[in-house]
Simulated assay, not measured.
Amino acid sequence: MARRYGGNPAGTVILLIADIAALILILWIALFLLDANTANGLVDWMRDAANWLSGWSRGLFTIESDNWRAVVNYGLPALVYLLIGHAIAGRVNRA
Rank of each mutant, 00 (worst) to 15 (best):
A50L: 06
A39W: 13
V92C: 01
A18L: 12
N51F: 07
A10H: 06
A30H: 02
L31F: 06
L42V: 15
G75W: 02
N67G: 12
L82E: 05
V13N: 08
I17E: 05
R3Y: 10
R91P: 06
A21V: 11
N37H: 05
T62G: 14
L79T: 08
A22L: 06
T12D: 10
A89C: 10
N37S: 05
N93D: 12
E64D: 12
L60R: 08
A89Q: 02
Y81T: 03
W28F: 07
N67H: 12
I14A: 08
T62D: 15
V72N: 00
L31G: 08
R91H: 08
Y74F: 09
D19K: 11
V71A: 04
N93R: 01
W28L: 04
D66W: 09
A89D: 04
F61G: 06
I24L: 11
F61L: 13
R4I: 15
H86Q: 11
G85A: 09
E64T: 14
S65A: 14
D44H: 14
L34K: 05
I20Q: 03
D19E: 14
I29E: 00
V92E: 02
A36C: 02
N8P: 06
R47L: 12
A70R: 00
V43C: 10
V92M: 01
Y5E: 09
L53S: 06
A39M: 13
A95M: 10
D19S: 11
H86N: 12
W68S: 04
N93S: 07
S57H: 07
A10V: 14
I20S: 04
L83Y: 06
V43W: 04
L34F: 05
V71K: 00
A89G: 08
L53T: 08
V72C: 07
I24N: 00
G55F: 07
W56I: 12
I84P: 01
A2C: 14
A21F: 10
A70V: 03
A89I: 10
D35E: 09
R47F: 12
N73F: 00
I17N: 07
N93F: 00
A87C: 09
W45I: 14
L79W: 05
R91M: 10
G11R: 00
A18Y: 03
L33I: 03
M46H: 09
N40V: 11
R58V: 10
Y74E: 05
D44Y: 14
R4M: 14
T38V: 13
L53K: 05
T38E: 13
L27M: 13
H86V: 09
R58F: 04
A95H: 01
L27E: 05
P9S: 12
V80Q: 01
D44C: 13
S65V: 09
W52K: 13
A21N: 04
W52T: 15
N51R: 10
R91N: 11
D35K: 08
D48P: 13
D44F: 13
I17P: 02
A49G: 08
T62A: 15
R94F: 00
D35F: 04
V92T: 09
G75A: 04
I29Y: 01
N37T: 08
A2M: 11
L34N: 10
N40C: 07
L42F: 15
W45S: 15
D19M: 10
L16A: 14
L82V: 13
W52S: 13
R3N: 14
T12M: 12
P9V: 11
I26R: 01
G11H: 01
L53A: 09
G55W: 08
Y81N: 01
S65G: 13
F32V: 04
M46N: 11
A30M: 03
